[in-house]
Structures are given as C-alpha cells and as structure tokens.
Design a protein around this nucleic acid. Structure first.
Length: 478
RNA sequence: CGGGGCGUGGCUCAGUCCGGAUAGAGUGCACGGUUCGGGUCCGUGAGGUCGGCGGUUCAAAUCCGCCCGCCCCGACCA
C-alpha cells in the first residue's frame, strides 16, 4: 500500500529504489539476510517476463527441462576458472538427515557443471546435437552486499545450456540468444540496451567469450541485464562431452550458456520509474489499466457500477484490467496508489461519464491532468489499444533519449574521468586489462562492453595511448 | 569483510546523553458516520516481553558487555 510519499530520485536514488520496491508491492525482505520475498504483484510481472522470453526460446527451437538444486562439490573443481570464479560465493550443504555428508553439496550458483555432467551421458553422436535446453529456476550466490532484485543471495532466472558440433554453430547460438535478449528488452520492456562483448576481466568464469546487454538506469549507472556465453570446449573437456562426428572421429563438443534474471525487474524500475512511483511498460504490466469508479452516494454508486462492470467486461476481452472497487477510499487516493504501482492507464467513470456516455482516460507516463482525456465509451477499445501502444513507444523513446544524452564520446583520459561521473564514456581502448584496471582505480567505473556497433577504423587508447581497434563503454555499474 | 548509521505498536519516529510511576506521537489497521472527478473529516477501538542474551542497580527502552539483523558508503558480483 502506498502510504507515504516517495523520496525523490534527485534527492537519493538508492532510497527511491528501495522504497518503490516495497511501496509498489513488488517484493519484501525475507528473514534471512539478502533474501527477498517476491510478492504477488512482483511475481505477476516476472511471469509476464517469463512468458515473453519463453515464447522466444521456443520459437528458436529450445525446450525446457529441470536440473537439480544440489551439485556435488567436486563438480566445481573440474573447470579451473569456473571454480575460482564461483568458490567465494558458494553456499554449501554439509549435513543431511542429521548426518555429516561424505561429500559436501553445493547449492547451485549456476548449472554448467551439473548440466555438463548430464550432457556427457546424453551426447554420443553428432546426431544427438544440437542440444538446446533451457531451465527456469533459482540459484544461490553468497553476495556480500545485496539489494532487492538487483543482487540477492537467491534469485530467479532462466539459464539456457546448449551443445553443438562446431564452434561456428555454438558461436551463432551465443549471438542468437544475445539478440533474443536485446529484442525482449527493447520491445517488451522498453528498456534500451546495448549489445556487446565483455572484456577479459569482466567475462564469465570459464567462458571463452561473454556477451551482455547493458542498460542505463536513471542515475546513469549501467545494469547488466542479460548475458550469453560461448565456452568453446572448456566445459566439454572438463565434463567429457564427446561425440562421434560424421567422419567417425571422437570430438569434444562446443557449449554455450545464457541467462536472464529477476534483475530485469530492477532494470524496468530504474529505467522508467519517476517520483510518483513505478511506470510499467504496457506489454509486461500485470495490470494494463485500472478502472476507478467515482460516486458520492448510494444513488450515484448504483448508477456508476453497472457502467463500470460493462466497460470492464468489454476491455477484459483484450486487456489486463482491474477495477478498484475499494470502498471508503477517495478517488484521489486511488489515483496515487495505482500510479505508485505503475499501471500504464487509468480509467475514471463517474456520474458525469454515465450521463455523457464517456470515460476519463489518464496516462501514467504523463502525470496529472496533462495525461487525462475524455472519450466516448464506444471508442474505448481502440483508444485504449492506441494509448497502450503509444505509452510503450514513448517509454522506449524517452529512455533512449535519456541514455543518448548521457553517453559521451571521449577523446582522452581527462574526458573519460569526467564523463563517467555524469554518464557513460565511449572510448577507444587497446584491450589491455591494465588500462581497464587503471580506470577502475581512478574512477570506480568499469568496462561494460565492447559494443557490436563499432565506428570502424583505428584510434588510440584513451588510457595508454597505444593503438586501438575497438571502442568500449566505461561506466559505473550495479 | 572494512567504515558509518540504525534497531521502541504494521510503518515512520520521539523518549536514551542525565535510570524512576499505566512507554508516547503521526500514519496505517478495525468499526460507525461523513466524504468521494488528484492523497476527506470526525468519533470509538485493537495493537508494544522497547532486536536478543547476559551484567550493573532497590529500579533498565535508558548504563556496560557480547551477539543478531537492516540500511548507507567501499572491496566482489546477474
């Protein structure tokens, strides 16, 4: 329940975020440090995200399966970089049934190892390939500093794990899923993201290359919102995933993995939200429009409610509709309440509307009376349809404009250090981790990704001055 | 894990420095009435072992010790 005013973004963005998560009824703190409870409204949003992604996975030939939560500790020791990357954040089960376990079990922080083990049993021939499996579930990583949705000890996600006969095919898969995430983020979430390759220091533990989509939040910090990894034969060698190729030669397979998590809810919040609360993109919003009946007494109520019900039924055939019939709350209160929850459209129906056969239609992305129009009840379905599309497009356009205003094409180190204080820096970089490290040391900004879209040509590294053939984004990140 | 802050009805907090009687306020919640086109108003009521454990004291929300948790800022990460 939206009981009090929100801390303005400009005053304290962190505080704004923490408050909105709770006031918009998305999630709450669990009794264990760093864990969250996703509340029904937040979960409904997640379900819409899941559906939009799952539809895309299925459309590209993937199938869902489920692998176990507990993984033998020894599995993690099979891939050197993987264990080094994950061991600091593993939760380990040492007892079961009141007895110490012979081998400790790790609560999965990601499932490459257990899935790799299974794949080694399943893959015998090139005819078994490709394997294109996705899993919806949760994982546990013992993070030090946590925030609801952005970093919790346990989080919900999907992880795709695929096996291919050739490096080219596996690389194409990695890229396909990166593009899938991009399409989802932009077209469903209205979250403009930049696709790119991770630097050596930023890539996934055990990957040959990692790719990500990076979004800019309204405090200009970057949020990695989805990742896709190419493993080459790293995991197939560690887990002995071999197949006979068409020439009857035994060969290690090529694997990939890719994931997107409840963190994306954080991206939606911090991309679109304002000082009134959440703003949800219509395509993902659990409630696309809320109807608020307005009446003063029983007579007006009995005149208004049948119209409300008729309008609700008409709209519910096409849209996700909710009627706020709570008694004893003023309309004004309800307006604010649903604005806090980010519902894209609001319809008000009162005595005047009953008389004039109209409704008031208010857009969440245009606060106050500016976003309010009166339309006839007959024209409602096309008007709502139009408005939702327009809101979806406006949110994206606004986020793109904000992002582009805060990306600075920098030519030297001084410009870079300045740029990362007020946005992202786009800079030539030689690829040397030492240059990356220096930027981080000096500014706390890290390399986010080397974008797919490159200007071409050559330049000089803004850190060391050596020749550079690629440009990279540096930003402070979540 | 280092630095800082905080822990008192559901929530936000006062009271703690300087120990003392039935521990307060606002908000929320329940009920009744009133109101309702941008956060109505009035009344009645429920709700707290003052984060936990231990110590000092005739007496602890208040002083001391230990522990736990949360938030903010750093080192690490989806």
């Amino acid at each position: 329940m939206a009981d009090e005013k929100l801390t303005p973004q400009s005053e304290n963005f962190s505080e704004w975020y923490n408050q909105i998560v709770q006031k918009a009824d998305l999630a709450d703190y669990a009794p264990v440090r760093g864990c969250m409870v996703v509340k029904p409204y937040g979960w409904a949003l997640w379900e819409n995200i899941q559906q939009a992604l799952d539809k895309r996975f299925k459309a590209t030939g993937h199938v869902n399966a489920a692998f176990p939560l507990l993984i033998p500790m020894s599995f993690f020791e099979k891939e050197k970089e993987h264990v080094e990357g994950f061991s600091p954040e593993l939760a380990v089960v040492t007892h079961g049934g009141g007895q110490p376990l012979e081998e400790p079990l790790v609560v999965r922080p990601t499932s490459e190892t257990i899935i790799g083990y299974m794949y080694s049993k399943w893959v015998k021939s090139y005819r078994d390939l490709p394997i294109l499996i996705n899993q919806w579930g949760s994982v546990v990583r013992w993070e030090m500093r946590t925030r609801l949705f952005l970093r919790t000890l346990e989080f919900y996600w999907q992880e795709g794990h695929t096996v291919h006969a050739t490096p080219e095919e596996a690389q194409a898969e990695t890229r396909l899923m990166l593009d899938t995430y991009y399409d989802f983020a932009v077209n469903e979430g209205a979250v403009p993201v930049i696709r790119g390759r991770k630097s050596e220091t930023e890539k996934f533990a055990g990957a040959i290359s990692s790719w990500s989509i990076e979004g800019m939040m309204r405090d200009t910090r970057a949020l990695q919102s989805g990742t896709s990894h190419y493993f080459g034969q790293n995991f197939s060698k560690a887990f002995d995933i071999k197949f006979l190729n068409q020439k009857n030669e035994l060969e290690f397979a090529y694997t990939t993995s890719w994931g997107m998590s409840t963190r994306f809810i954080g991206a939606i919040i911090m991309t679109h939200g304002d000082d009134q609360g959440l703003i949800l993109p219509p395509r993902l919003a659990p409630i696309q429009l809320v109807i608020i009946p307005i009446y003063r007494d029983d007579a007006e109520q009995s005149a208004v409610m049948p119209v409300v019900e008729r309008v609700r039924q008409t709209l519910a055939e096409t849209f996700r509709v909710h009627v706020d019939a709570r008694d004893g709350l003023t309309p004004g209160f309800k307006f604010n309440d649903w604005e806090m929850r980010g519902v894209p459209l609001r319809i008000e129906i009162g005595p005047k509307d009953v008389e004039k056969n109209s409704v008031a239609l208010a857009r969440r992305d245009r606060p106050g009376k500016a976003g309010k129009t009166f339309i006839s009840q007959e024209a409602l379905v096309p008007a709502v349809s139009e408005a939702l599309k327009d809101i979806q497009a406006s949110l994206l356009a606004r986020a793109i404009a904000f992002r582009d205003e805060h990306i600075f094409d920098v030519q030297n180190y001084a410009e870079l250090t300045d740029a990362v204080q007020k946005g992202w820096a786009f800079a030539w970089w030689c690829g040397d981790p030492a240059c990356e490290a220096r930027v981080k040391e000096d500014t706390r900004a890290t390399s986010r990704c080397i974008p797919l879209d490159q200007p071409g040509g050559k330049g000089v590294c803004v850190v060391c001055g050596k020749s550079a053939s690629e440009k990279v984004y540096f930003a402070r990140a979540y």
